[in-house]
Amino acid sequence: MRPIWTGTLSFGLLNIPVSLMSGERRTDLQFRMLDSRDDSPVRYERVNSETGEEVPWKDVVKAFEYEKGSYVVLADEDLKAAAPGGKETVEMAAFVDEAQIDTRYFEKPYVLVPGRKAEKGYVLLRETLRKLGKVGVARVVVRTREYLCMVKPLDDALVLIILRFPQELVDLADFKLPGKATADYRISKSEVAMASQLIESMSGQWTPGEYRDDFRDRLRKVIDQRIHQKGGTTQVRDADEDLPEDATTNVVDFMSLLKKSLDSKKRTPAVGKSASRAAAEKPAARKKAPAKKATVKKAPAKKAASRADAGKPTATRKAAARKRPAKATRKSA
């Protein structure tokens, strides 16, 4: 399995080299769309809505529609300027009780795997979190986007769970929900007792292995039957990083770093590097590139006159052009 990135897990002055690995396995059955007339694959294409012509990737730009039909175009420099600065680091911001985090915030699991010779710091954090019953709340950059996340011990692993930001959740007050007392809904004590008895009789331990995606299993069975069925398949001919080494650590005085972390909130270089070495490895400040002047692309030149018009006198062609309806123009930002 390939890591998403290799970086550090940081809390206080301790920086633990880790690899961020995906903690989920996609089991969805993937389908291709075919043209039923000749079984050719159907492709998605980028088409200009006015000309109907396919647009190459090099001519595609990102734009934000701030009003209906009005766009502001963002250059690559704008996107880079807004991108988060800290990469390949899980930096702890706080430690809280896991029960305080609403389950609606949980989104996607990852696994943090320690680098070579980083086991001591990894186990120290894992077992301390387990002993105190705490989880870490941090920020992490995954594929150019910054996320809120939670780091928690699970068996021998430190698991990183991507969390949703509060703005991504719909406020429960926005829904029409029954919020009065049970008596207001004419629920009797005997009904509550009966419901409690039923729930107790169905209660047990959470054993995820007992649950399977039955729909996928049934669909897979149908596919296998079609594969072995005569005439049930068709042959289709498509038209159409290097991994960094794990970071290493040397013997480190963890007691000293932990004591300094309690006395100061300043961060030090990653474990295993001296301050002078880390400073020497810092890249020189890059000069800011001069800002590019905003340019407005001109509309593509109109196609040459058709062959039918080629033989007509100039005056006749001009008259015909005046009769044609004017083409609607788009509002540029």
Rank of each mutant, 00 (worst) to 15 (best):
L262Y: 05
T207P: 01
P109F: 06
F106Q: 08
T314S: 13
G179E: 15
D217A: 10
L177G: 03
A239F: 08
Y110M: 07
R139Y: 12
L9V: 01
L158C: 04
L258V: 01
L74W: 04
L257D: 10
R267D: 07
G12A: 07
K266C: 03
R130K: 12
V73C: 01
S188D: 07
K230Y: 11
E65A: 09
G12T: 03
A193F: 11
K303N: 10
R212W: 01
G12V: 02
Q229T: 15
G311L: 09
Q100H: 07
Q205C: 06
V47A: 09
R216W: 03
L79I: 11
Y211A: 11
P109I: 02
L154F: 13
P290Y: 02
P208R: 02
K120G: 02
M33Y: 06
F106L: 15
A333C: 05
F254I: 07
G204T: 12
L160D: 00
S203K: 12
V90I: 14
D59S: 05
K230F: 12
L132W: 01
K152M: 05
A333D: 13
E191N: 05
S306A: 13
L258C: 04
S22T: 10
V18A: 03
L257R: 08
E98W: 07
D155H: 10
K302P: 07
K273A: 07
Y147A: 05
L257W: 02
V42P: 05
L154S: 09
M21R: 14
E168W: 07
E53G: 01
F254E: 00
K131Q: 12
V60K: 00
D102V: 05
T182Y: 06
V135E: 00
P109Y: 01
L177V: 13
P325Y: 04
Y44V: 11
S274R: 00
A93K: 12
Y105P: 06
K318A: 15
A280D: 00
K273E: 03
V141T: 09
G232D: 08
